[in-house]
Design a protein around this nucleic acid. Structure first.
Lengths: 233, 233
DNA sequence: CGATTGCTTGATACCTCTCAACCCAGGTGG
DNA sequence: CCACCTGGGTTGAGAGGTATCAAGCAATCG
């Protein structure tokens, strides 16, 4: 693997290059060269809790996840955080309307992503390329999710929020009847607009009601999916 | 004006046609025919509080506002409502990823809109039409707004929410230093994830603090815009 | 091992909701 | 013209849910 070569194609903005050189582990997967050339994308790797980009960064690139989980979030000046979404394998994130990122992205777990140059994509738009269509559909879907999330944040109570969160991950999870959460309680709290304590208490309550079982803090078994679904409404 | 002709081009889905014939006032503006033909859109008029479409309706059409204000919202089964956005002159709303509307749209005030057939637009996409680009940019902008709104719903207190709401309308308003709200307190509450009483109390509090003045319930004068901006977080 | 990190649990405070009464402006009908 | 009614808005008292502060526990890591 040629690190210097990979850095030469580093898609991170100039402002971030120094940081990127220090903190980003970068590697080409086996067929990385071919994919990179054919899609104008580079394969990158980020370790857990590494920043991928920050609010205000130049939005030269956007990303598609190969593996791992990424959170995108916004901050208030006093540090309060709202997680907009968790992104998993196959998801696109970081595409912006303007020329700078409107939220931050961080690796929830170790993860591998493809970075696409936006400039290249704008060319694709003219050709009605498949990636562009994927991008458009991403934008519209992500809008739909944002709306559902607004309903949750604005009008649901703690139990409904946590139940909805669990259902959401049950859907994404391969193993039916249980989920393994990649994120901390703090992440969950910031996603649901709650505090870490309320999330913990609510999960404990659901366990006391025999609706879920906390095998470990991160591994949750659904003992009564129907009840959970009912609560999430 | 030929009502029957206008109805023949009624873009509302079949399921809603009967209702539409009863409740929708429809009229062509002077150059309506020309605009309709050139943009594949029909001009419609909705009276205050009329439903434009409901969650679950077939999403055959989307709309652009000529005048008036529209709210788009979602409901929980028990009636709790979350207003996703208020749309004003020039805004596009009702474009969906799938084949049915994911939220409802209602006229906050009397309003005039252009209805575009989605099918027609998909043709435009191939041609890289200006309307399509407008549509894409609408999708991405609307995503950005949804995210800001999530931060507000999840992490801000009542005062911050109300202050942010006022600032938002101050920006949209032509007259600097004051706003005239088109919506009720209930609409504001459902937009901010609060109750009508809390909105009212918070506005009263802001008036007591000499930050705003409630000329009438709907007409608000900004006595201290800087303080308002500071409060909006 | 001690230290750290993530998580859980308890006691209490506080903010917003709930329920209720009241006010006010506008419209209606006698 | 005025009494009445209605809908939107305001205000108050009390309840309730979530946040805050604080302590303790378990697993992981030097």
């Amino acid at each position: 693997m040629s690190t210097s070569l990979a850095l030469a194609r580093n898609p991170v903005s100039d402002a971030k290059r120094v940081i990127a050189e220090q903190s980003v582990e970068m590697e080409e997967v086996q067929d990385g060269w071919e994919r990179a050339l054919s899609t104008t994308g580079s394969v990158l790797h980020f370790a857990q809790d590494r920043e991928i980009y920050t609010e205000g960064d130049e939005a030269e690139t956007f990303f598609k996840i190969i593996s791992g989980v990424v959170r995108t979030c916004k901050f208030l000046s006093d540090g309060r955080r709202q997680i907009d979404a968790f992104h998993v394998e196959g998801d696109i994130f970081g595409f912006e309307a303007g020329d700078e990122h409107r939220l931050s992205a961080e690796a929830v777990s170790d993860c591998t992503v493809i970075a696409y140059r936006r400039r290249g994509v704008e060319r694709l738009a003219a050709n009605n390329d498949a990636l562009f269509m994927q991008l458009f559909s991403y934008a519209v879907c992500s809008m739909a999710r944002a709306r559902d999330h607004s309903l949750l944040l604005g009008r649901k109570g703690a139990v409904e929020k946590v139940a909805a969160f669990l259902m959401e991950w049950a859907d994404r999870s391969s193993s039916a009847g249980a989920v393994t959460l990649a994120m901390t309680r703090q992440d969950i709290a910031d996603y649901l607009g709650l505090t870490i304590e309320t999330v913990s208490r609510t999960l404990s309550q659901l366990e006391r009601d025999s609706i879920i079982e906390l095998c470990t803090a991160r591994r949750i078994h659904f003992k009564n999916p129907a009840a959970l679904r009912a609560l999430s409404a």
